[in-house]
């Protein structure tokens, strides 16, 4: 079924004052097991070497090549053309700063946000003893933490989130999930109060409106929905301590999905 594919690609070079946003059409012969990575590389090698598009691992593990594919954010290298109609429309990810054509600056945003939520294990690094055994950890907990460490910072979840599109200071599902990762980790010595300070606001966990597009587009299948729910419940319950009776708070905390190993 060797189709002729038509790719409508967004073109714009913000560094060129003469450039205006437009769509450009390329045709490519389809092969077996063809991915958008192969198609776009072909276009760049053979038709238009100025096409800006980011690829790195071409194996769906680095997160470079996220773009909007027929209206949906996804990884180009991870998308097989056989799963798409013969006419394919490609846009750069919204939300992030456009560098040109299909290339956007996710790196700066993730770094800035990482600093904002203090995305590191708050422990005493100086206390590391090279001669001592490592801290023991339950394997299930390790797996649970790794599950959240699998995020490749592709930015699809941000681009798909209507809240983020409206309110550009929204930290997004990925940041809240990232905080959940540290919240789970016994090596991080932060208290609930500390976590509340970084995401307990309308830019953080309370900004999310439960649109769940993040969950639905995440190419790595990170459990964003569950983490958003858990963190919101934990943070909200933390805020009403003293307002609501304690037993009620405890019951609500334990309802629904929760961290099997959550800190007390």
């Amino acid at each position: 079924m060797n189709r002729m594919l038509t790719l409508n690609i967004f073109r714009y070079n913000p560094l060129d004052p003469d450039s205006t946003p437009r769509m450009q059409t390329f045709t490519v012969q389809e092969y077996d097991s063809m991915t958008l990575f192969i198609a776009l590389t072909q276009i760049r090698d053979e038709k238009d070497p100025t096409l800006k598009v980011d690829f790195c691992c071409r194996a769906g593990i680095c997160g470079s090549c996220a773009m909007v594919i027929n209206g949906r954010p996804g990884l180009a290298c991870h998308t097989q053309t056989k799963d798409l109609p013969a006419e394919i429309t490609l846009h750069p990810l919204p939300f992030f700063q456009l560098l040109g054509d299909l290339s956007v600056d996710t790196g700066s945003w993730f770094r800035k946000t990482g600093l904002q939520i203090e995305a590191w294990c708050h422990s005493d690094d100086k206390a590391f003893d090279p001669t001592a055994e490592e801290m023991r950890m339950d394997n299930d907990l390790a797996n649970e933490i790794f599950e959240l460490d699998r995020c490749i910072e592709c930015g699809c979840c941000m681009a798909a989130c209507g809240t983020a599109r409206m309110r550009t200071d929204f930290l997004g599902a990925v940041s809240i999930m990232r905080v959940a990762r540290f919240y789970l980790d016994p090596r991080d010595k932060r208290s609930e109060d500390d976590y509340y300070e970084v995401i307990g606001n309308d830019q953080g966990v309370f900004g999310c409106m439960g649109l769940l597009a993040c969950e639905d587009v995440c190419p790595k299948g990170i459990p964003l929905q569950d983490q958003l729910g858990i963190m919101r419940r934990m943070m909200a319950m933390h805020s009403v301590k003293g307002v609501l009776p304690r037993p009620l708070i405890e019951t609500i905390k334990k309802k629904g999905c929760c961290h099997a190993h959550a800190q007390s």
Binding site: W120, C121, S123, D125, F128, P130, A132, E133, E134, M135, R136, M137, D138, N139, L141, A142, N143, I145, F146, D149, F182, D185, R187, D188
Partner: peptide, 18 residues
Amino acid sequence: PIVMREVAHWGVPWNRVV
């Protein structure tokens, strides 16, 4: 071995012995 423990101290979720 020291380095593996060090990164564990920093937060790497190594799989553990069950």
